[in-house]
Amino acid sequence: MAKTVLITDDTAFMRMTLRNVIQKNGFHVIGEAADGEEAVSKYKELQPDLVTMDITMPKMDGITAIKEIIKYDANAKIIVCSAMGQKPMVIEALNAGARDFLVKPFDAQRVIEALHKASS
């Protein structure tokens, strides 16, 4: 059965791009969240196998959301998505429990590699 993915990003454009890449490569996008709060509540509701998490978002940022999700499920498989120049945040996210990171602009292959590695 295809692994389920929850996409978190505050821009619709990025969610669309990611959904496109992920769906085409044998994963199933089970839901989308536009901010950290939504990501946490959708994680609890949908129990996805994988989460992609943007860092800079309104309401609750990605790092806080990662902490919240890990608190709820220590085995959550989260991949943090960052822009260039967000190195300290990426490290913080990894320390908070993210499994891997992606740097924008995304390379489709990298996205899929990260999903595979995180879910294995």
Partner: peptide, 8 residues
């Protein structure tokens, strides 16, 4: 972000 990759 090679440095972060090295960090992982």
């Amino acid at each position: 972000m090679k440095s972060v990759r090295a960090y992982t």
